[in-house]
Amino acid sequence: METFNVFEKIFGLNFLSALISVILPLVFLIIYALIAILGELKISAWIQERLGPMRTGPYGILQPLAEVVKLIQKEDIVPAGANRLLFNLAPYVIFAGSFAGFAVIPFSAAFVPAEINIGLFYVFAVGAFAVIGIVMGGWASNNKYSLLGAMRSASQMISYEIPGALVILSAAVLANSLDMQKITTLQDGGFWNWFLFGGPGNWTKIWIIPFTLLLSLIYMIASLAETNRTPFDIPEGESELVAGYHTEYSGMKFAMFFFAEYSNMFIVAAILTVVFLGGWTSPFGTFMGGFWWGIFWFILKAMFIVFIQIWLRWTLPRVRVDQLMYLGWKVLLPFSLVCFIVISLYRIIY
């Protein structure tokens, strides 16, 4: 099989190339998380007309590093009534689940950690580990706020997985593939070929453009709910549940939950980028294309989605539980079903 992993070409298919392919996304994830935390602090400050952190480094850009040092120093507390084994296991399960998604994300034309032809399906499946981890942590904390937060989170993630999966299914029908690299290469040749604008094809694709725009919007909303971000962050609603499923966690274990949330944010942003925004392809056709520009475009597009997530978090108020379920089951699900049928019809006709 043709490989898209540049390290396999250089070192051959051995342990070394596998190790590099695993470590490189992890290094990227750590750097990205630091930048995203800084972004969250600064963007929230700008939206609220504050300055944000200003003391650590010029304009406070070293603030995330200071936060990491602080978290490492914190005492690691396990509550007396907690189930020790599961309490300690939960942060690892959550982080392992979210990091597993990085295995199939095509960062560039020449680098996908693991090239498998059911990449989209795989990313969706490993998301299940996050649900298990959250429920594990919430239950093991032996705290009613944690348990309530975990229950809310699990039900929310399961509900919003359905419209999200329907969007992915529509995209798979449109692209005729579940391979993330193949979906990306299909959209090569300018932003007009992105699936956001109906994908590659002649003028007949115009009448499905409203539906593909709607699909990307549905996925954006569903992904916010799946990553427990505002306006769907009721699992950790401070005014009701203290901090939800991670109420009892401190120090680095809390940091693992935090880290997993940022990692999940990037994964949904990457899925949205690959499926609707053309992945690593340049929006101007061959101009600014190629290997290095590919990495640049992919990270730029994904970070733009992450920026939108942060922007929405500090702009919108939190929804109620019943509003959340109403939106998921009675608005997003019918709309995504209609879009799915229309897209399938389009594929049959053309």
Binding site: F121, F124, A125, V126, G127, A128, F129, V131, I132, V135, A154, I158, E161
Partner: peptide, 10 residues
């Protein structure tokens, strides 16, 4: 993974 871990186990 999808059905047994994401569905039945939950």
């Amino acid at each position: 993974i999808m059905i047994y871990i994401g569905g039945i186990l939950v």
